[in-house]
Design a protein around this nucleic acid. Structure first.
Lengths: 136, 136
DNA sequence: GTTGCTTCTGTAGCCACTACAGGTTGCAGG
DNA sequence: CCTGCAACCTGTAGTGGCTACAGAAGCAAC
């Protein structure tokens, strides 16, 4: 039974974020002392740590809550968890691909730059580049 | 001299976003008709298109505004623009690296999953994984 | 004149926090 | 017992870059 500051240290979740999680319904409301201070049991700390690990892996809070639910459920949780993680990984890979396209486009633009030219080819490209329809 | 809807079509920036850009000081306030409707000149549309291309390349609005300023300035703009773009590309690459680490971690976790096991190794890992100090 | 599209202002919501302001509690030292 | 200070409390506003309304008004065509 520890205070919020110690729970923060033990879970790796900042104090303000713990309170935010409580407000947002991500974790259960902990008990309080007579004076109104939050008091955390070991399982509350475990929940916070679980959420933090999910967040470190890029899962949304919604996914994190779902995974936490699955972790309690002994039946068929592995399949479901695998599906959640698989979908998340697919999104991560999509984003990597997007960023790699961005990197390539930026590299092409920057390549002809920074040589002190009169007319900047990058700025020219930005002014006259792809038309609105070709957005992708 | 066109209305906002046509400016949106011509620039590829949605109407609501154009108004948001105006509020946020990203683009200059356009003239108005007697009844208060916004009226856009070709150079206003060009500015919107410029901002949109910057956004498509992942630049922040702040960078987009800076680049637009440089595009007007004939002196030394290329160097400065190259620096802005170079820094942005570095951030993009950092993010790619982050996401690739995420992808690897997720792949490892998912690998032993989705086989209908009794105890899900991924959920176990999330419950007992890296401690709060080893956050990176 | 009336239908229906466009435009107007203003505000709230998204995500996941983060950072206050302004007050209370708890504990240690003197 | 008093002082001082850290930790805690609630509530609210801000971040970025939109997006989505509500409710009113203008404008063109039939």
């Amino acid at each position: 039974m520890i205070a919020i500051g110690e729970a923060a240290r033990a879970s790796g979740v900042p104090v303000e974020t713990i309170r935010y999680y409580e407000r947002a319904g991500v974790v259960a409301k902990p008990r309080r002392t007579a004076s109104g201070r939050r008091v955390y049991a070991p399982e509350d700390v475990a929940a916070l740590r679980f959420i933090r690990r999910c967040r470190d892996l890029g899962f949304s809070l919604e996914d994190a809550v779902a995974l936490r639910g699955l972790a309690r459920d002994p039946k068929g949780a592995c399949d479901a968890a695998g599906r959640v993680a698989g979908q998340h990984r697919a999104k991560v890979r999509d984003k990597i691909a997007d960023l790699q396209r961005l990197d390539a486009a930026l590299s092409e633009l920057v390549a002809n730059c920074d040589r002190g030219q009169h007319d900047c080819p990058m700025l020219h490209q930005l002014m006259a580049g792809p038309d609105p329809r070709a957005k992708g």
